[in-house]
Amino acid sequence: MSFDPFIKLGISAILGLIIGLERELKRKPVGLKTCLVISISSCLLTIVSIESAYVFPEKNHITMDPLRLAAQIVSGVGFLGAGVILRRGNDSISGLTTAAIIWGAAGIGVAVGAGFYWESAFGVALLIVSVEFIPVLMSIFGPKQLREKEILLQITVADAKNIAEVIDKIKSQNIDIKTMRIKDLENHHHLIKLKAAVDQKRAAADVYYAIRTIDSIINIDIESA
């Protein structure tokens, strides 16, 4: 009996563990266990697909594609990835990176199952570098847009006459306003919803204190990634 399939499954488990650990450390919905299952299962299906192509034709005299079953894994895992993509109430999308990680874990499993060990290991290394270190470098040396983070502000203003003044003072605090929505409330109050960008290193508390000093503002609600 050949031990090659067991070696492949072991390598796939180790590489899947590395991918899952990165998600686990960030407290993402798809973590260690999910990536392990995806990577190992993809590897197993690839092994079955390849081995079957060379075992059954000898008995049935038929032609089979060695990677036919494995080819369906990548598309099939897309359904699992779709389950972790969420749309928040503020119309922002989250979970895309996690969905991509799921797809990547399946790809690593397929590669290991096909016998591409070093390529798989290098792929995992590049994946971790891309997710962990590249964004950090971009936040330091990249364009201004990549050195900013998005925040959502909900501000209650006492009088409509003060809205323009409040917006000008917010802009003066190095807050780049992208979109704005104004809604009338009871008691002649007005709700201003802003999608803005600030420096990546700037804390949400600092933004809060900077805006809280503006006159005519009654309430502030800040949401930051």
Score class of each variant (00 low, 15 high):
Leu67Asn: 09
Leu67His: 08
Gly104Asp: 01
Ile62His: 02
Ser92Val: 09
Gly113Cys: 09
Ala71Ile: 06
Asn60Tyr: 15
Leu69Asn: 10
Val55Glu: 06
Trp118Met: 10
Ser94Arg: 12
Ile93Arg: 14
Pro57Met: 00
Arg68Lys: 10
Val55Phe: 15
Gly115Asn: 08
Val112Gly: 05
Ser92Met: 11
Lys59Val: 03
Phe122His: 00
Asp65Ala: 02
Leu80Asp: 03
Asn60Glu: 08
Ile62Gln: 01
Ile101Val: 11
Leu96Asn: 02
Phe116Glu: 05
Pro57His: 04
Ala121Glu: 06
Ser75Asn: 13
Ala100His: 08
Arg68Glu: 12
Gly107Arg: 06
Gln72Ala: 13
Val124Gly: 01
Lys59Pro: 00
Tyr117Cys: 04
Leu67Gln: 07
Val112Cys: 12
Phe122Gln: 05
Ser120Tyr: 06
Gly89Val: 01
Arg87Glu: 05
Ala105Asn: 02
Val74Gln: 12
Ser120Glu: 06
Pro57Leu: 02
Ser75Glu: 13
Asn60Ile: 13
Ile62Phe: 01
Ala106Met: 07
Glu119Tyr: 15
Met64Ala: 01
Lys59His: 09
Leu69Gly: 07
Phe116Gly: 03
Ala70Pro: 05
Arg68Leu: 10
Leu69Ala: 13
Trp118Cys: 00
Gly89Asn: 14
Tyr117His: 08
Val112Lys: 07
Ser75Lys: 10
Gly123Cys: 12
Ala125Ile: 12
Asp91Ala: 15
Ala111Arg: 01
Val74Met: 14
Gly81Leu: 10
Val110Tyr: 12
